[in-house]
Design a protein around this nucleic acid. Sequence first.
DNA 1: CGACTTTTTGAGTCTAGTCAAAACATGTGG
DNA 2: CCACATGTTTTGACTAGACTCAAAAAGTCG
Lengths: 251, 251
Amino acid sequence: MALRKSPVRLDWVDPAACTLDYRLKIIGRPPFFKHLPTEAIEEINLQFHDHSYPAGQAVYFEGDTAEHLCLVAMGRVKLIRNTASGHEVLLDILHGGEYFGNLKALGADAYDETAITQADCCILEISSEHFEEILKRYPGVTLKVLTAVGKRLAESREQIAQLSTFTVDQRIAAALLRLAGKVGEAHEESVLIQLPLSRQDLGAMTGSTTETVSRVMSRFVEEGLIRSGRKWVAVTDQKGLEDLIKKGAVN
Amino acid sequence: MALRKSPVRLDWVDPAACTLDYRLKIIGRPPFFKHLPTEAIEEINLQFHDHSYPAGQAVYFEGDTAEHLCLVAMGRVKLIRNTASGHEVLLDILHGGEYFGNLKALGADAYDETAITQADCCILEISSEHFEEILKRYPGVTLKVLTAVGKRLAESREQIAQLSTFTVDQRIAAALLRLAGKVGEAHEESVLIQLPLSRQDLGAMTGSTTETVSRVMSRFVEEGLIRSGRKWVAVTDQKGLEDLIKKGAVN
DNA sequence: CGACTTTTTGAGTCTAGTCAAAACATGTGG
DNA sequence: CCACATGTTTTGACTAGACTCAAAAAGTCG
């Protein structure tokens, strides 16, 4: 069921790709800027600096002083925590228009996770101070930021509940559905998850191991729930995966 | 090693206990009100209503329309999520001065967890609208709320990392240390966790089962790390528990 | 093609869950 | 104050899900 070549196609990122037009589009995406008029976005744009990162490079490390709020303009960014035991936990994968830097810029001192580019990226960064100025100038934004963070908190708690009660099968199914909903690209028979996703990544997302993920995914393929190859996955039977998650209810 | 009677003593709560003085003290505790002058606290106080709940009663349920932000004045409140599989996940246990209601009041529609009193409680509640008015009147508060929510997000992510990589032993040790730090009461040889805490509660906190928690705790008692009885725990060897958590590093 | 990475498969082990029953506490009412 | 009803904790035996280690197979890229 695996294709010869990965069907995942990420936009090629060259440093010049972040045109003014594109920057404005990206800055207008986060829920806390979306409602602002074009002039405001243009003004805010002046405070952002863009940086290009090749795939696999760190934007910042866990423990660094939290000086920036970042927006993914192009590419994909992984948020990772390294535990004392040397294990890697993949907290989230972000794509165009999503913010990170965890808003530590506001009050806390250090980043509590590492941000690594998963593909070539263009990242827009704003300093803590400039962001606070924006909050002062556009008071409505603060409340929206609060809502956005609240949403992330809710998601984290959902994740906690899942890790606490789901089997590995269910956690993997949930992760695939979440990613499909987020960066899914509809094809004839399936929804392609538009990012390079290895078994190891999935293991780190679900609190499992590469080998176990591999076994489970092979079974999912046999059962016709997904199609998958090296570093790519497509969901073919969304309802089937959802049923698998609910199935725990029988216990 | 178990005492005949639980050493945990919670203040008795009678409906009249929430005197004006006490209310003002509690309202001044959350990080987002702490910095306000007395007059402001007094004004804010007028928007809060107090409610008494006997132990084991729900303040609100998961899915209810999120209409209130709450403060624990007296007693203890458990934040719980019920999964589709019928399992209970204990997200947090709150005590005097801590807020809950998850700030859904700001933007989102429904509570995403159930709040149940673990002991007799006095809860201060404020409506969504009144809270928003306060945010407008005291602009600095919004930013502090944001910081507070950000902190909870960071804690949740820590929790995710722990669930993903820790063994049950380590998760239980971490939970005990967290609770000891939060509601711990120093005694000669130990730190008593000042709340009624059953093995089942600990199971729900650590994504484990009553039986497993019981076995692990018995071992902890043997090893002199804790002392425990029916619905109470005291940490006797904090460093021992910390070592246990770090021990994963050997893997 | 050949070096490298990722994925798969296999066998063995162990942690933690399940089910069932006993032991223990606690509070109640006689 | 004792006996009973109830809820909590402990213990035991068994099972199974998932991890570990090791090696082979399959993709990918220069």
